[in-house]
Amino acid sequence: MIEFRDFSLTYPTGSRPALQKIDFIVPRGQICAVVGADGAGKSTLAGVISGVVPHMTGGETTGWARIGSRMLAETPASELVGEVALVMQNPFNQLSGARFSLREEIAFGLENLGVDRAEMVRRVEQVMADLRLTALADLSPYEMSGGQQQLLAIGSALVMRPAVMVLDEPTSQLDAVGAGVVFDALETLRTQGVTVILFEHRMERPARCVDRVLVLDEGRIAADGQPDDVLTDPRLADWGVAPLRYTTAARQAVERGLWEADRPLPVTLEAAAEGFDAALKGARTAGGL
């Protein structure tokens, strides 16, 4: 479980707090998306959860935050290894830079933790299979494309079997196939009881799989709720988050009488298709009368 209570953080060089009075609880096994404009505090929040901020960056905090029974203010990242895994935006910087093959790179964290070799081999092979990386196992991480490095960075985090996964735009360099692989892996994590905090700009896939969406705006929580509610909020664009086309289309269709006014606005393809089908049938029946 992750819990933030009245948590604020100001960087040494910051004029205003990067996070202000953050309050939320993410229960174990929940997949929570965090969205917001550039500079809304997403990276800071990711850093706090993974024990990087303020321990490696400096900064004044008030209030508190914890993961399970560990208070984050007192727990640097090195003590959270194995419990919290962080996948950063730039996959290249996530690599150890000292391993000569993808397979060895994925094992790097396990080696540091002293995981038994047989267990390590099992986990590494499993992760490579899950992320469709087995064919690249012997390739040097330096020779891989940005998209492949991104999958490798995710694999290196998954293999640690953390209780909490923090993912910062994990599919930014991936095409639909690669992104599909990543979101399938998130579904697997859900069944294993792993808590996932996902930072994203593009919401179509998250809308389908996350349990909850948290909107950050200028360091504060602007909205917090289920994707159906938060992603259809009319203020979404003002918070710097692109509304889904399905939602926009339905909202505009309401004005033309082609979306039933009492039907919730859709955030998935399925819901949109169902709603528009119903509206078309309704229109035809009305026209036929």
């Binding site: 505009q252 082609l258 393809l269 298709a273 528009f276 078309l280 035809r284």
Partner: peptide
């Protein structure tokens, strides 16, 4: 979305979608 609604030719923008929707409704 257009494909899912069974429309035979593609639509690509929200505006195009709404126009097509209006046609289908009438």
């Amino acid at each position: 979305l257009g494909q899912r609604l069974g429309w035979p030719t593609p639509v690509v923008t929200v505006d195009g979608f709404l126009d097509r929707l209006t046609d289908h409704a009438s």
